[in-house]
Amino acid sequence: MKAIVTGASSGLGRDMALYLAELGYDLALVARNQARLDTVAQEAQRIAAAHGNKTITIETVTLDLSQRHACEQLFEQYRNERIDLLVNNAGFGLFGDFTDTPLDRELDMINLNVVSYHILTKLFVRKFKNDGHCRLLNVCSAAGLLVGPRLATYYATKNYTLKLTLAVAQELRRDHVPVTVSALCPGPVETRFNATAGGKFLTPGASSRAVARYAIDKTLAGKLIIVPTWQVKAGLFAARFLPWSAQLRIMDRFDAGR
């Protein structure tokens, strides 16, 4: 079995890669920072060996997936290999009012959070349909089910990837294709997200390791929408009954950490 994990150098990507190594998967780890990828690869090898999986192979691939050609390059590198699982995880956020946040940074976010997911989902799902019995996990967010003042562009990107994932999953299910597509929708997670985004949420983040393990287990079970914690599940359920005006006010405070 082999899995590709993007954004594997830190956070959820790192922790999902380590759990997959524990499960005995060969790995292709993708990110921009080669030194961090090497560190994750070494840790994954140690974990695999500790769990009796001494023969797994780990490859590192240094790419900036915000560039279209890098997404296509990643696919070309693995198009003729059996890939059992693709984890689309690379992404980032940006705190700040929409009129204040830099346009170039937002366009980089759209390219990474939306365009790369779109390209890789399309290319690999086409491949998976031919290969059969493969799985794809798009790391979306609870943000994909909400609206986010002070994180407007980030929430918009996650709405896109979530809705894309759901639609593709239904097309595969309708046509009885033995491929599953899943959407991970966590709330805040203890990663480098806040430092990169330049802000914070009102509530502390969930354990990255716990969310990663939960996400992989549910993906391998074929679950469509994966929400890791009861707090986020309860919040999303309650949001269904709120008018947009109330939801916007609540999220404005939540995303500002006030």
Results as ranks from 00 to 15, higher is better:
130 N>E: 15
8 A>W: 08
206 A>L: 15
183 A>Q: 13
91 G>T: 05
195 A>E: 15
147 V>F: 01
26 D>Q: 02
74 L>M: 06
111 N>Y: 09
106 E>A: 06
251 M>H: 06
18 L>C: 07
135 R>K: 10
86 L>R: 00
145 L>Y: 06
99 T>F: 09
71 C>D: 07
57 T>W: 00
154 Y>W: 08
139 V>G: 04
205 G>Q: 13
234 A>H: 13
230 W>V: 14
233 K>Q: 13
15 D>S: 10
31 A>L: 02
172 L>P: 04
17 A>T: 02
143 A>V: 07
215 A>I: 14
143 A>N: 02
135 R>E: 09
245 S>H: 02
211 V>W: 14
184 L>R: 10
94 L>R: 07
3 A>Y: 09
164 L>R: 00
145 L>S: 05
82 R>K: 12
13 G>E: 09
13 G>H: 11
116 S>F: 05
226 I>P: 01
215 A>M: 14
176 H>E: 15
56 I>F: 09
2 K>S: 08
133 H>N: 13
238 A>Q: 08
49 A>Y: 02
39 T>G: 11
161 T>I: 14
251 M>W: 07
58 I>F: 01
24 G>I: 07
232 V>D: 08
236 L>Q: 00
225 I>T: 11
248 L>K: 06
226 I>E: 08
98 F>I: 14
11 G>F: 07
180 T>Y: 03
195 A>D: 15
183 A>R: 02
153 T>M: 07
169 A>D: 05
116 S>N: 01
141 S>I: 00
142 A>R: 00
155 Y>P: 02
185 C>T: 11
47 I>R: 01
165 T>W: 03
74 L>R: 04
218 K>Q: 15
139 V>P: 01
212 A>G: 07
162 L>F: 10
93 G>K: 04
89 N>I: 06
169 A>N: 04
187 G>I: 05
164 L>Y: 03
180 T>W: 05
16 M>P: 01
21 A>Q: 01
232 V>Y: 04
241 F>R: 06
6 T>F: 07
16 M>Y: 04
